[in-house]
């Protein structure tokens, strides 16, 4: 399974955000790096089919696991229900993964009561658990403490052994050991 962008361009209100972006990403983590507002999220959204490029093409996959920058969790539901919303009744592996990420599947609190870091980890767990052909992770480690960061990174590395992972970040520390596409 391979992801590819060929001469992808996108502008918002006449301001170019992506200009002739071309790359190929196979299995493993590929970092998309740019300053804030540099088009990382836009490029991920183009791969996810949420945004159409002005020109150029992308080769994408049918099933994505995605962790969005804004987490996009159902705030009124608890962690288990948030996962069930995308996974359906098959929750195998959910409890173990949440425990690895320092979360508890039996936590009855609605997600709105979670801290920013907990929401980010839950959002990452949702992306990792859903059956997918590739992962799109938008700033998945933003705001995490050192320990949580390490745990999340280990989980992402494991997932990347089987499928392509696009990791958008502006932090150089997140890119160590991974190929980097600078936008």
């Amino acid at each position: 399974m391979e992801l590819q962008a060929v001469n992808v361009c996108k502008a918002y209100n006449g301001t170019p955000v992506l200009q002739n972006v071309t790359f190929t990403a196979g299995r493993g983590v590929t970092c998309l790096m740019a300053a804030s507002g540099g088009g990382k999220s836009t490029l991920l959204h183009i791969f996810l089919g949420l945004v159409r490029p002005d020109s150029g093409t992308v080769k994408t996959v049918p099933r994505w696991g995605a962790a969005f920058q804004e987490t996009r969790l159902l705030e009124h539901l608890n962690a288990a229900n948030n996962l069930q919303f995308v996974l359906g009744p098959d929750m195998s592996g959910a409890a173990a993964l949440l425990a690895r990420l320092g979360l508890d599947l039996s936590d009855e609190r609605p997600v709105r009561a979670y801290s920013g870091g907990m929401k980010r980890r839950l959002s990452l767990a949702r992306a990792l658990l859903v059956p997918s052909d590739a992962l799109a992770l938008d700033e998945p480690f933003a705001g995490l403490d050192e320990e949580s960061h390490a745990r999340c990174l280990a989980c992402v590395r494991e997932a990347a052994e089987e499928k392509p992972v696009l990791l958008a970040t502006h932090a150089p520390a997140d890119t160590q050991g991974f190929p980097v596409i600078r936008l």
């Binding site: 089919g49 949420l50 969005f68 996009r72 159902l74 919303f85 995308v86």
Partner: peptide, 16 residues
Amino acid sequence: RQLLEMADVFHVPLRR
């Protein structure tokens, strides 16, 4: 809209 997009990306069925 962001939640609806999330549901689209994860192919969440209509009833859910």
